[in-house]
Amino acid sequence: MTRLLEVEDLEVGFGDVSAVRGASLAIERGETHCLVGESGCGKSVTALAIMGLLARNATRRAARLSFDGQDLRGLDERGMSRLRGDRMAMIFQEPMTSLNPAYTVGSQMAEVMLRHRGGTRAAAMARAEDLLGRVRITSPGMRLGQYPHQLSGGLRQRVMIAMALMCEPELLIADEPTTALDVTVQAQILRLLLDLQRDLGLAILLITHDLGVVARVAHRVSVMYAGEVVESAPVEALFAHPTHPYTSGLLGCVPVPGKVARGAPLGSIAGVVPRLGPEFRGCGFRDRCAHAAPACAQTIARRAAGPRHDYLCRLEPGLAGDAR
């Protein structure tokens, strides 16, 4: 059976800035795939490129971009909008602004269903009510008739999740779904996503910069830096043997109670993600890397560090790990 989503050598540019530079991703059915990296490294742009929702001034190229064996590159706007919301759905970071203030929760949810599956409005409303219950909203029947401003942030994100699930998608792209929520609500939403995934066999592409979230929910992790996937591995392998210096740097930034002395400075990686043009060659991380050498300016080959574990660095596996 083919993989659900395969992205190879994805490139997205905005004018003379390359936001994504040859990123590759593969998502299996029913898998939670986390895409991590700091702000500005191309995570959200990658997700939007997969959904075909890039801004007009963006250019997208890929060696391969297929969903369930279907090539998305040649698909026109009409074909994409048939897929979106039906077989692949997306939820956004800001639950406070992601719902249309002009309509009730129920009518927005029913809309998605009616658009893709047709049927009666009553049936769509019934499905919406059922899903609101599934995302553990109490008295879903009452919520259907409410407007977004009557709901809290956590409730709205649940509504967004329920809305994304209306047509039983196979792929759910969640772009930092918990970042805007407070910590207790974050935990509830994550647990909810995992439960839904187990029940519905949904594949999730979860974009986050919270490694704590990754450790709890991911099956597989891809680390993005400056528009490239610098390391991709099953979650246990990534946390046990981070191979790319950026990955180990990221892990080094996570304070661990008991391990990090009180009052000691928290870990950090000096510098920011560079804005790279299309002519840039070599490793994008070399200006911030402790292992940088002249050879890093050459084109770097992707190497294997273990089963289903690859990375993009000239160093041998095991060498970068001691950056921690």
């Binding site: 929702l53 956004f92 800001e94 719902l99 998605v112 893709h116």
Partner: peptide, 19 residues
């Protein structure tokens, strides 16, 4: 964001403008 969400839900241009 809710317009982006509508695109992501597969709405057509006309629908996005009108609704």
């Amino acid at each position: 964001d809710y317009v982006a969400a509508a695109w992501a839900a597969g709405c057509s241009k006309g629908r996005i403008v009108l609704r």
